[in-house]
Amino acid sequence: MNQNYEKYYVPDQSPWPIVGAVAMFLIAVGAALTVMQASEEGGNGHYILYGGIAILLYMLFSWFKNVIEESHQGLYSAQMDRSFRQGMSWFIFSEVMFFMAFFGALFYARMISVPWLGGAGNNAMTNEVLWPTFEAVWPLVTTPAGDTTQAMGWLGLPLINTVILLISSVTLHFAHVAMENNKRGPLKVFLGATILLGVVFLGLQVEEYIHAYQDLGLTLDSGVYGNTFFLLTGFHGMHVTLGTIILLVVFFRILKGHFSPKKHFAFQAAAWYWHFVDVVWLCLFVFVYVL
């Protein structure tokens, strides 16, 4: 038989998945109750939510600890490494499709529902009967019902944020090059810089939200323009937050001396994720802000 075959490592029983399942259950119930009790006094749903998140974090920490130990024991073959890589790629593809749903909503609102409400195509009577004073413009600053808001410009904070994310992708690439050449000093510097840029991006994003709410009157509930703006940038922001945390974990692992020029899947997965988040932002910048 094929003598040079490396055994595929099948882990023994593990408690972490079921712990993670309980955590997800608590998060789902807690989140649902929190949302349902939002208008009431003294809801307790958020305690369940926090409990679930705490258990999930504990689970992730322990699960990854096991994985890292197994990796250091040399249990993972090249084939195993391919499994991880392919798994991560497909996960990122699923994330792309998640954003597609919201981009789809943006395109539909902009190209179809708003113009139709304004009487485009054969919809003259829609406009006439429902909201005769409504005029279809994008950004939708006056909704058919008459709520008004102001549009977010693309110069200023959004442009700065775009530049920041683009630079962060470059620094991360240099970090990867340093990793492959086993230059640990530059690796730490470039990775640290990437994380820092991520944090700055998030800070500026908060700043932009404050500006939107306080100065522009642009809120989550100000019509479909505000809806798509906040859900797209919001979910993107959550992904940047997650990406930053992942990079931070990788950074601490590098400080502990983990990874080699040849074997650094965790670093690479984190980098792929970061580049993906970056590409989403570019689409956001073009379709939400500029156009």
């Binding site: 949302v35 349902m36 939002a38 998640f98 597609m100 749903a101 919201f102 789809g104 909503a105 539909y108 609102a109 179809i112 529902s113 708003v114 139709w116 409400l117 429902l130 939708l140 909704t143 058919p144 019902a145 709520d147 989550l220 509930d221 019509g223 479909v224 323009y225 505000g226 809806n227 798509t228 859900l231």
Partner: peptide, 25 residues
């Protein structure tokens, strides 16, 4: 997941993805 999320925000957070009064459909 995106569709149920929009249902959630439409129902609980006053968005109007699926409400013509806010420009949705």
């Amino acid at each position: 997941a995106g569709a149920v999320t929009m249902v959630l925000t439409d129902k609980y957070f006053a968005t109007s993805f699926f409400d013509a009064a806010g420009g949705g459909d």
